[in-house]
């Protein structure tokens, strides 16, 4: 079992950039549902998508995602 939880600040950083889920989804080439599930920690994105999200929000991947031990 994975003892880590992947935290993210996607919602906060998206709001700071005045982007809707749909706009961010469009920018990184995924569906709005994918953004929603990442924000709600239902879906863990691939490295490629994590890098794309970080780039779209103009932050580093570490600022966007962090590991929390259970």
């Amino acid at each position: 079992m994975n003892p880590h939880i992947l935290n993210n600040r996607l919602k906060e950083l998206r709001a700071r950039n005045n982007l809707t889920q749909a706009q961010l989804a469009e920018a990184v080439g995924v569906t709005r549902k994918t953004i929603n599930t990442v924000e709600n920690r239902v879906f863990i994105p691939s490295t490629v998508l994590a890098l794309k999200l970080a780039k779209a929000l103009d932050v580093s991947v570490e600022e966007l995602f962090s590991l929390e031990e259970e």
């Binding site: 995924v30 569906t31 549902k33 994918t34 879906f43 994105p45 691939s46 998508l49």
Partner: peptide
């Protein structure tokens, strides 16, 4: 097409 068949779709 690539958007509709994205990572969450695969999952």
């Amino acid at each position: 097409q690539a958007v509709i068949q994205d990572e969450a779709y695969g999952q």
